[in-house]
């Protein structure tokens, strides 16, 4: 191998993608040729420096959330999300108030076929990172858009109890009781931490409930609750936050369960739906 041939192989040698034969010939040449060895060493050091000083920067959680929301809005605008499963459960806003509740009940009975539903989808909470508040808001949007579908469709707490039994390491609660109806449940895990998701309706609103093991959250891995949120929970027993789009989250703990509920309501409206200390619906005590 002469120096010109060697020069052409320096970059692939640095990136360790030379074939066996070229690799041997290259090594033999740089061992004997100081200028080529120097050039190889310079490029190798440069690559190492880049790798050490310019690390991959992950998408910030708020950007991931914005992406999810943007895609959902676009899907809705295009009519791709027009068949959102929960829409069949709640009265449309155009329906008169007299018909409202009746329509909801009829819709629940008549328009709740499960046979033509696509298979339930696993949540992709990892898109927004380990922060429970962000995950809850993102999951709520994904429930609204239809991206999250119930694995279990039921209005009976007993069936939810059975569904989560043996899956979670914490008691799954049914915290919403005032004029709220259970409509479905989803189970998944985030980095090995089991999560219970339940969806309720309240008149024309959807409420999403996220539940995790409080001990896991306190450990800070794989789930995280920001210190500022923890502090408010310690001081006031509950953390609430209302975002610009009108969605409110409430986060609290009950025994070994951490609960977060999100709905497109103001704080008072959401708290009005909560029955904290509600009846445990399942899971290990």
């Amino acid at each position: 191998m002469n120096c010109r041939e060697c020069q052409e192989l320096i970059t692939p040698a640095v990136d360790q993608c030379l074939g066996d034969d070229d690799s041997k010939r290259f090594s033999a040449h740089v061992k004997a040729c100081a200028p080529c060895r120097r050039e190889y060493e310079l490029e190798r050091r440069t690559k190492v420096l880049i790798q050490h000083r310019a690390r991959m920067i992950a998408t910030p959680p708020e950007v991931s959330e914005a992406l999810l929301a943007m895609v959902h809005r676009e899907a809705e605008a295009r009519g791709d999300a027009s068949e959102v499963w929960w829409r069949r459960l709640v009265p449309r806003l155009s329906v008169g108030p007299v018909l409202g509740l009746g329509a909801a009940i009829i819709a629940l009975i008549v328009l709740w076929p499960s046979s033509d539903e696509p298979p339930p989808r696993v949540l992709q909470a990892s898109l927004v990172g380990p922060d429970i508040v962000r995950q809850s808001f993102a999951n709520f949007e994904r429930v609204l858009s239809g991206a999250i579908r119930p694995q279990l469709e039921t209005s009976e707490p007993e069936r939810v109890r059975t569904f989560f039994s043996g899956r979670t390491t914490f008691p799954v609660l049914v915290p919403l009781t005032r004029h709220c109806t259970l409509v479905g449940a989803v189970y998944n895990d985030y980095g090995g931490a089991p999560l219970a998701h339940t969806v309720y309706r309240h008149n024309d609103q959807i409420l999403y409930v996220y539940q995790a093991c409080w001990e896991t959250v306190q450990r800070g891995s794989p789930l995280v609750l920001p210190q500022s949120v923890r502090k408010v929970m310690d001081d006031q027993g509950m953390y609430t936050e209302t975002r610009a789009d009108g969605s409110t989250i409430a986060v609290w703990t009950d025994g070994t369960t951490l609960c977060a509920v999100v709905a497109r309501m103001d704080r008072e409206g959401l708290l009005g739906c909560l029955d904290i200390g509600g009846v445990p619906a399942g899971g290990a005590r």
Binding site: L68, V71, H72, A75, R78, G79, D80, A81, S82, E83, V84, P118, R121, Q124, R142, S145, G146, A147
Partner: peptide
Amino acid sequence: KSNRHNAFE
């Protein structure tokens, strides 16, 4: 249509 949204996500 809804599959389009799901597949994209």
